[in-house]
Amino acid sequence: MLKYKFNPIILLVSRVVSPFIMIFALYVIFHGHYSPGGGFQGGTMFAAALLLIRLAAGFDIAQLQFKKILGTPLGSVGVLIYFGTGFLAMLSGGEFLNYHFLPFAGFKADELRSLGILMVEIGVGLAVLAILVAIYDDLLEGYPHD
């Protein structure tokens, strides 16, 4: 593993900046219906906020924020949310990924489609976030020692 050198200024600045990037990433995900944005972009920005802490504080301290072992399971959960949304529509009588048949009462057809898009975007964002952080961790672990 690369040798980590403590630098208080870099650590302080990235600790201040990182939560704002996270808030903006959540805004990009959940406001993707009305402005440019969506799951892929928001997930990448959230991963950038996590990687900033990893670069500034070192690998060991950053484990308190997002554990290494969480990477691939969270990515699988994201894909399962996407797949489950399509499968839920199939169970209640429609085709796979046809959001018109989602079993929520009290919505019109086009509102149901909007809701289905939101669920899918959350799944995509979760998967992209977890997989990008997991790739960084794996590359760091595999770095040649000598």
């Binding site: 993707g32 219906h33 009305y34 402005s35 440019p36 944005g37 969506g38 086009d110 509102e111 489609r113 909007s114 898009i117 975007e121």
Partner: peptide
Amino acid sequence: RDAETPNMVT
């Protein structure tokens, strides 16, 4: 008309 979402890319 189909999805009541202004962002066409989404």
